[in-house]
Design a protein around this nucleic acid. Structure first.
Length: 201
DNA sequence: TGGACGATTGACT
DNA sequence: GTCAATCGTCCAA
């Protein structure tokens, strides 16, 4: 296949920045849903907060695939969260897609979520619910339906805000979260008692 | 084989 | 601001 995901094979932070502005196209139930990525977090096997820190296991196996695959995990027994696998085959790294803006099929996403507005897709679990993505899609090749990743031109650096990641208990200070400046769909989750938007934006 | 815990969300005070 | 929901994973025993 043409290596449309070549730019995701380098360092995972670079891939996480590069994924901002890219699109996810989900075909489900005869409809097409499309979103634009506005918030990402980087994880790799040399990072204590990553699922791959402990080595390759049945759960995290997809994260060791080559760049451009999908890794979906279940959080708190309730919520699916989607990652774009990055790096070379055999190296466990990926980018958590934390939030996105709806482009096509917003009404269908609202129906799936039971609500609209920024709450539609401004969190990793919310985004997966809106797009109908769950663990059955882990390991999927993102160049193919029913979930595709469309690369887009890199977003200029000044448009990217960098902060520590959200909701983790290890390596809490690493600046590995990235989001588009000013997007209303960026997640508003707090880190402890500190609102990351106030501290870093 | 059991128990602690999580890359979260939403309801409630 | 606080907290319950809910279950797959992982590790200790």
């Amino acid at each position: 296949m043409t290596d449309q995901f070549a730019m995701l094979r380098g360092p995972v932070e670079e891939a996480a920045r590069r994924l901002l502005g890219c699109e996810i196209v989900r075909e489900i139930g005869g409809e097409v849903l499309r979103v634009r990525i506005v918030e990402t977090e980087a994880y790799d096997q040399d990072d204590e907060a990553s699922h791959t820190w402990i080595g390759r296991t049945p759960r995290n196996d997809a994260m060791f695939l080559s760049a451009g695959h999908l890794y979906v995990y279940l959080s708190h027994g309730l919520h699916s969260c989607a990652n774009v696998v990055t790096g070379e085959e055999g190296y466990g790294s990926g980018v958590l897609i934390r939030a996105a803006e709806p482009l096509d099929g917003e009404a269908r996403m609202q129906a799936r979520r039971g609500r609209g507005g920024p709450e539609l897709t401004n969190g990793p679990g919310k985004l997966c619910q809106a797009l109908g993505i769950d663990r059955s899609l882990t390991g999927h090749d993102l160049s193919l339906p029913p979930v595709r990743l469309l690369m887009r031109p890199a977003v200029p650096d000044p448009e990217i805000v960098t902060t520590p990641r959200i909701g983790i208990s290890k390596a809490v200070d690493l600046p590995r979260r990235f989001h588009l400046r000013g997007s209303p769909y960026v997640s508003r989750m707090r880190v402890g008692k500190v609102d990351v938007h106030r501290v870093f934006s």
